[in-house]
């Protein structure tokens, strides 16, 4: 699926929608309606992957959608503030997002509003900090 085609078709419904090198971009406020639309009208019925990147002064949450069984893929990105790292959860659109979002919360500390079970998934519950953030500092491990 060509992302510029989707961006063009949906321009009138979503102000923030954009197309940057075959990637659909959208603001977090419009994320959930867009995702519903992509699932119901464009038949992106499978969330292949959800991840996030720390760019230093902002985060980007990345959704890889695909259409089964046609095999088309589409990447959607949304930019998140570093200070107020909050995104609505896509759990209601694709329930499989629940573990992806727990992992992102665990390693990058992005809060997913409306997530039913936002706990750490990979690290110990007593762990402090979010190790994939660029400003995470770690000393220790081996003994001196």
């Amino acid at each position: 699926m060509e992302s510029n085609k989707v961006a063009e078709q949906l321009q009138e419904y979503f102000q923030s929608i954009g197309n940057n090198r075959k990637v659909l971009t959208v603001s977090p406020d419009e994320l959930i309606p867009l995702m519903y639309r992509l699932r119901d009208e464009y038949e992106f019925n499978y969330l292949t992957d959800e991840t996030a990147v720390d760019y230093g002064d902002y985060f980007e949450v990345i959704y890889n959608l695909s259409r089964v069984p046609q095999g088309d893929i589409l990447m959607v990105k949304t930019k998140v503030d570093k200070e107020k790292a909050e995104v609505p959860s896509v759990f209601e659109v694709w329930p499989g997002a629940i573990w992806f979002e727990r992992e992102i919360f665990d390693l990058l500390g992005i809060k997913f509003t409306n997530h039913p079970d936002l706990r750490r998934i990979l690290l110990d519950d007593s762990f402090e900090g979010h190790p994939l953030r660029k400003d995470f500092q770690w000393v220790g491990g081996r003994e001196v």
Partner: peptide
């Protein structure tokens, strides 16, 4: 034995 290649990691028991 010692944590091996991951000895400096934040998540591994040495």
């Amino acid at each position: 034995i010692s944590g091996g290649p991951f000895v400096d990691s934040y998540s591994v028991v040495p």
